[in-house]
Design a protein around this nucleic acid. Structure first.
Lengths: 177, 177
DNA sequence: CTCAGATAGTTTCATAAGAAGACTATCTTA
DNA sequence: TAAGATAGTCTTCTTATGAAACTATCTGAG
């Protein structure tokens, strides 16, 4: 079980892309774990954070911001509302739309989520000096920009559930039984 | 951690974690896209790369190496076999096990996969000087080690998938709205 | 030899995320 | 008021997995 620990097997790329995917996936997973004691999923936590900034906007406005489909947005808001963290309010000026607001419980939860985020950030950066951390963030920002990732809802990834673990799936080509 | 629970309106948490998750996800997705012209999924490509090094080992040995469940391993090998890229060979000494081998087509495909990996690496690093790139890789390696990630997974094949990834992990950093 | 238990691999079943499209309510405008 | 656009919701399908059951094979004790 240890026959491939030491000598990087020829051919196993330990490159930048590999590291980014692995670490990104792991970071996401750990964040989810840290969040579970709060009874929240990442998607829900993300929404709370977003709402802290975009409170009062319509569901659609926020869905656009995050790149979520309307269907997904409804589902997410349903969840958060069931948890008593957010509230849908009919916009008196246009009753077709529902503006979203955090409830008091929502704000409390948001504070806890932020604490978890801080904790997670700290853990990831543990082992780096603050200078290294800043340098890393700077470099990652450059990459993010080069890749067209804006700092809000990403172009097409937000709902992104599947972070990287692609798995067996009926391939584009032939797939057997 | 200055970005604590303060109701920082436009100030969402800084975001090393956010950047890592977003970029990692994006990188994985792009890799998948680059791979699709070959008719492969990331996991399949990852398996080919792994087999290039561990050829002849049993399915289980390789599944353990990659952190795959037996179920998924079977499915993945079924796909690769259907594509004619790998071959299951009964071990004459122990007919319960199936040793895996790359076929000739598999080796050809592997070469193409490697080309895609290189291409992808280059694209991600575009915009960085080679010095910056090395620095970035160094820092990421430190994080990977600190997080207990050994370089055994494969590009696009996180060790052990777990919970749902980020949803609208809106993040940290400047909120767009 | 043959039965019991361990192993490698496979199959079946259940679950969850997500997308698409249909449907309802409401606004706008002519 | 009717036609068309919008916001939100609901229904349904597909895909991705993991868990557990099942088959075949090997190993070891009587």
């Amino acid at each position: 079980m240890e026959e491939e620990a030491g000598p990087a097997p020829a051919g196993l790329p330990a490159g930048l892309a590999f590291l980014l995917v692995q670490i990104g996936f792991q970071a996401g997973r750990q964040f989810g774990e840290r969040l579970s004691p709060l009874g929240l999923e990442q998607r829900q936590a993300g929404m709370l954070i977003r709402l802290a900034v975009s409170e009062g906007e319509s569901q659609q406005a926020i869905a656009d911001l995050l790149g979520l489909t309307a269907t997904r947005m409804v589902f997410l808001v349903d969840e958060l509302e069931a948890l008593g963290l957010v509230e849908r309010r009919r916009n008196p000026a246009d009753r077709r739309s529902h503006a979203l607001y955090l409830t008091t419980a929502g704000r409390r939860m948001l504070a806890r989520v932020r604490a978890v985020v801080s904790e997670h950030e700290a853990e990831l950066a543990a082992g780096l000096t603050s200078g290294e951390r800043d340098q890393l963030v700077t470099l990652l920002r450059r990459i993010a920009q080069a890749q067209g990732l804006t700092a809000q809802g990403l172009p097409g990834m937000p709902p992104a559930a599947a972070a990287g673990p692609p798995a067996g799936c009926p391939g584009p080509s032939a797939a057997g039984s």
